[in-house]
Design a binder for these strands. Structure first.
Length: 1044
RNA sequence: GGGCCAAUAGCUCAGUCAGGUUGAGCGCUCGGCUGAUAACCGGGAGGUCCACGGUUCAAAUCCGUGUUGGCCCA
């Protein structure tokens, strides 16, 4: 790791550092260094073990890693156990695919136990691959001991927490209408439903009224739910009309919401209509009707209260304004049905097929029955209109099967009972960004329904519920408790808590036998207990006592409804508080157009590609250089490349002093600011460093990671590279040992050493490489502390003054460009005109430095530049009408004249024209040979007049530059001596160059100038070049002096 | 259909909280510098601050309506 390449090549740095970390046990040493620090309990949001790392997870883990490293450097013992979410339907579906299974029956035939083993092995394989992925981007977490949601200790945490919830009386069993996947034959969570545009039937159906003439008209996109119709809902406030509609000479009475009448009749192709009666929705309540499919069904909802009209708040003046409601299917229907105390009628089984109750449709998959139902309605004269409707509809995220809503027996945590507590607990947490908590999260929690935690599947944590025939149940909290209470012999240390091992266990107490409820937990239960699971609680208690709850968690914004919520729900239900203190929410990685990366769009960029093309540190820095709080990132290759260039500047700054220090035998590890002499630029850069340290720390403390990073990178490029290094170059070239050189060494090494540490959390490889090269006293840069600002080195006034100087310098360069004088040629004067005393004082104070940087013989500060010349500008709006045909001539005569000339009257063809003040305005311009450029505090004028002296120096410096170029081309050592031949084609110029022979020799390490009008033998010279210097041909020869 | 977030130069983003002449980097182009050198610096061109309406002496910024994209929900 000792070589410092000329070029920053991330791959070389990273592989060398990786090897070094291994050899030096750097990770262990770093943790050891902070073993006695106060704790910081970070909990890793467990990624699902279904695939591999993508850019989004790379961002997520990089951010976690950077914060962990920062926290360590600021003196914390950080909990860094990574986690994996390993249960659930996604893996079951993958394994089913591998085994060629179609239905749950295939699994049962294969056997639950071998199936579970397959799932376990699948999850384990994926975890190992992901371990490697995460380590490949330099994530320092405890990879030897990740928590796995499928481990017995972890599963026990879920059991324990659920037992707490049950003890608070928040567990409930009951029918609910849930999102149901008919293929997977299980309830699925709302966030496991994906939505897509589909085409559905769109039918208007007449429900004949029982006690009077006419029909209620409803609209639906799910004909298959009509067999389960239980009531019709209206809006109590809305106006409804009974209309007599005519078609083909016949008429009938239809009940429709008033705003919908026209549209519905148009759909039904009625020719004419009249309004018979008008009602408030309230008045329709209690109307009874018949299910129009009744003749085809064996059973329908005809129990007490069914087949009637009720009000409901989900009714809108849309379609017909009357809503067909089936509590067995619709979620809102279900909720309203419960309020109305109506039974739940579900003529559909767990496979999504109609039961015998559905008569003619029995055995048919519900959606396949749509056409028959529509035909039957049509035949019976109940179909008012039929068409199709495009809308978004949910399907199962794993198998793509369209979901159905089904009221089934499920288990719930009744979070709606503790809604106030949940909302209060949100207040106790700190979010970055805060709006995510106060808007997004609060809205979600306010609307959250009871949490359905049961799944009718296999690969998950079994529900720890044992139920007796009378419905009473027991919840078991730990393996020990199960061993104690179970009727069978159970070894708590050997028992795999998975199905089917726990299924046959029974509990007999007080003469009642309890059997296990066969469901498994919703997989969101798994991750919801991560704060306990990370600490192996309840089987281990010490860490829990010390650390819980989590200090900080971070995930992307999809987890507002996911992990941020599940943890709040579980924490509140189990122990009455959120299991975390601080939450940070980052965004998603999209493509460069801000579109989601997806297979179908073909716009996916993988972390491997990015590492291949740019490197790990550049990728990490790129991901962390954008706003980390709440907003997405549009990934762009150019941006990644830019970051690599920026780090390359850092690399160049780092290696710039190394050869000089080596020549001088100066060991950067011993750099000491009290050694040598510092100049004003040293003081300035040290002061800037203190400001940067303070800003970076402040930013980190608010998790403004991008601000912290960009502040340091800006300092490196703007201040250190662009300004400081340029300013100290000459001091480094000094042959002799000097106090000034040592001052510069100490300053630059200090700057480097501290910026390395400032960047270490973000670019760990680069920082380690640089640190080990400069110092290497500690096993790892990551074991060191984060730099703290030193107020003694801070000089705000100097920083302000230098900012002025840099503005002035920029303006001077601008003015030079306008005056056509390049920087290598000196100028006589630079005049700074400013009305601002502070600006003037700053320029005066740094005058020597400014003179050097703008290559001027003198710097003058004036309030106003009194050499400006006023030039007349004709005002044609006045001159035109006044002089008519002569106006053009007047204009030409006035243009550009001095005020004096104009006021004396302009002469045209011998005639003098007098002009009034209105006819002419004046612009102030600098005189010839002076050009000006504005800056923030005034104007900088550069006098580019040539004198022989200036010309002489200019040409001489041009010659020096050419010789240096040739030395470089010959690849000579910095201190190699040469013989030089210079022939200038123009004798006047030649004589200028001759005046500067000594200087040229000194600058280029020329031992001897070889004279002569011609080159005796060109072959004797290592290199001969003809140059064009300001239009003059200069021939130069260089020959290295043979070293003795 | 609803909630939240975003929209500013060719590209990626600051600036929006707290109203007062729109900025940076990259790219393009012209120039400069030069023993950090396949690096570096400066000038220039480039803007309907998504659209429309409102508040205000003044709106990229505040308010309303819409459009497009992202996340979440139905």
């Amino acid at each position: 790791m000792d070589e410092v390449d000329d070029q920053y090549t991330p791959a070389a740095v990273e592989s060398a550092v990786e090897e070094y970390w291994d050899d030096a046990d750097a990770y262990e040493a770093t943790k050891e260094a902070h073993a006695d620090d106060p704790p910081f309990f970070f909990v890793d949001g467990p990624p699902y073990t279904s695939g591999q790392m993508h850019l989004g997870t790379a961002w997520n883990k990089t951010l976690k890693d950077a914060v962990i490293r920062y926290k360590r450097m600021t003196g914390h013992r950080v909990t860094d156990r990574p986690g994996y979410d390993m249960h659930g339907l996604p893996i079951e579906v993958k394994v089913e695919e591998e085994l060629g299974f179609e239905t749950k029956r295939d699994i049962e035939e294969f056997g639950i136990e071998p199936f579970i083993e397959e799932c376990k092995a699948f999850a384990e394989r994926n975890r190992e691959a992901m371990d490697d992925d995460f380590q490949s981007i330099g994530v320092w977490m405890d990879w030897d001991d990740p928590y796995e949601t499928m481990s017995p200790e972890y599963m026990e945490a879920a059991w324990w927490a659920f037992q707490q919830v049950d003890e608070r009386g928040l567990v409930e069993q009951g029918k609910r209408s849930v999102n149901y996947c008919p293929r997977c034959q299980t309830a699925i969570a709302a966030n496991e439903v994906e939505y897509d545009e589909i085409t559905s039937p769109s039918i208007y159906v007449k429900f004949p009224l029982r006690d009077r003439a006419g029909s209620l008209v409803i609209w639906t996109t799910t004909p298959w739910t009509i067999p389960a119709n239980t009531f019709v809902a209206v809006d109590g406030e809305m106006t409804y009309q009974a209309v007599r509609a005519e078609k083909g000479g016949e008429s009938e009475v239809l009940y429709i919401a008033e705003p919908c009448v026209e549209d519905v009749l148009k759909e039904g192709r009625y020719e004419d209509y009249e309004v018979v009666e008008e009602f408030a929705g309230e008045e329709l309540v209690g109307y009874t009707y018949d299910n129009p499919l009744e003749p085809h069904l064996n059973e329908h909802a005809d129990f007490e209260g069914a087949g009637e009209v009720y009000t409901a708040d989900y009714v809108e003046a849309d379609r017909t304004g009357l809503v067909h409601s089936a509590p067995g299917h619709g979620q809102e229907d279900f909720a309203r049905g419960q309020e109305l105390d109506l039974d739940v009628f579900v003529p559909v089984n767990g496979r999504g097929a109609f039961t015998e109750q559905a008569g003619a449709y029995a055995g048919t998959f519900v959606r396949d029955a749509n056409d028959d139902i529509i035909d039957d309605l049509d035949d019976d004269g109940a179909l008012l209109a039929s068409g199709t409707h495009e809308h978004r509809y949910g399907h199962c995220w794993r198998c793509d099967t369209d979901i159905i809503f089904l009221a089934t027996d499920q288990w719930f945590i009744t979070v709606t009972d503790i809604k106030d507590e949940l909302l209060d607990n949100i207040e106790e947490t700190e979010w970055y960004p805060q709006w995510a908590r106060d808007n997004r999260f609060r809205d979600f929690v306010e609307d959250a329904p009871d949490w359905n935690i049961s799944r009718q599947r296999y690969w998950g944590i079994p529900l720890p519920i044992w139920q007796a025939d009378d419905g009473e149940w027991i919840v078991i909290g730990t393996r020990d408790e199960l061993a104690e209470r179970a009727d069978q012999d159970v070894d708590p240390d050997e028992l795999d808590l998975h199905r089917p091992a726990v299924d046959p266990l029974t509990i007999t107490e007080d003469g009642k036998t309890y059997e296990r409820v066969p469901d498994v937990f919703d997989v969101w239960i798994d991750s919801s207990v991560a704060t306990w699971g990370t600490l192996d609680y309840p089987s281990e208690t010490d860490a829990y006592e010390e650390l819980w709850p989590a200090d900080w968690i971070v995930e992307a914004h999809d987890q507002t409804r996911g992990w941020f919520w599940s943890q709040l729900g579980m924490g509140s239900a189990a122990v009455g508080r959120a299991p975390y203190e601080e939450v940070m929410m980052h965004g998603f990685v999209n493509d460069e157009d801000g579109r989601k990366m997806s297979k179908s769009l073909g716009n996916i960029v993988t972390p491997e590609e990015a590492i291949e093309r740019a490197g790990r540190d550049p990728l990490r820095a790129y991901l962390l250089s954008h706003d980390q709080q709440g907003v997405d990132l549009s990934f762009e290759w150019d941006g990644l490349g830019e970051m690599q260039s920026t780090l390359n500047i850092f690399w160049n700054v780092f290696r710039f002093p190394l050869p000089y220090m080596e020549l001088d035998g100066y060991d950067p590890a011993d750099a000491d600011l009290s050694d040598g002499e510092r100049t004003v630029v040293d003081e300035w850069v040290l002061s800037r460093l203190q400001s940067v340290k303070r800003e970076a720390r402040d930013a980190w403390e608010d998790y403004e990671v991008s601000t912290a990073l960009n502040t340091v990178l800006d300092f490196l490029t703007e201040d250190v590279s662009r300004f400081y290094v340029k300013a100290i170059r000459e001091r480094m070239w000094d042959d002799e040992d000097s106090a000034s050189k040592r001052g510069a060494y100490a300053t630059l090494v200090t700057v480097l050493e501290e910026t390395i540490r400032l960047l270490a959390p973000v670019t760990p490889y680069l920082a380690e490489q640089m640190y080990q090269h400069l110092d290497g006293d500690a096993a790892s840069v990551h074991a060191l502390s984060y730099p703290e600002p030193d107020s003694d080195l801070r000089d705000e006034e100097l920083e302000r003054e230098m900012a002025v100087l840099r503005d002035v310098e920029e303006a001077a360069a601008n003015a030079r460009q306008q005056g056509g004088r390049k920087l290598r040629w000196p100028v006589e004067r630079v005049i700074v005109a400013t009305g601002d005393d502070d600006v003037g004082a700053a320029v005066e104070s740094l005058s020597a430095l400014l003179r050097e940087r703008v290559n001027a013989r003198s710097i003058e500060v004036v309030a106003e530049f009194d050499e400006l010349i006023e030039r007349a500008v004709p005002e044609m709006g006045v001159i035109g009408p006044e002089f008519g045909a002569d106006a053009q001539n007047v204009m030409e005569a006035v243009q550009g004249e001095t005020r004096e000339a104009v006021e004396n009257g302009v002469e045209i063809d011998g005639e003098t024209y007098e002009l009034t003040d209105e006819m002419v305005s004046y612009e102030a311009e600098p005189p010839e040979h002076v050009s000006g450029a504005d800056f923030d505090g005034g104007t900088v004028y550069v006098d580019t007049s040539l004198t022989e002296e200036i010309e002489a120096e200019g040409y001489a410096r041009d010659v020096v530059r050419r010789i240096q170029e040739m030395r470089k081309r010959l690849d000579l050592d910095v201190d190699a001596e040469i013989d030089t031949y210079v022939d200038v084609a123009d004798p006047r110029i030649e004589q200028f160059v001759d005046q500067y022979r000594d200087v040229v020799a000194e600058e280029t390490r020329t031992r001897e100038f070889v004279d002569g009008d011609e080159l005796a033998a060109e072959s004797e010279w290592a290199l001969v070049e003809e140059w064009d210097v300001e239009g003059v041909t200069v021939t130069i020869g260089v020959e290295p002096v043979a070293s003795a």
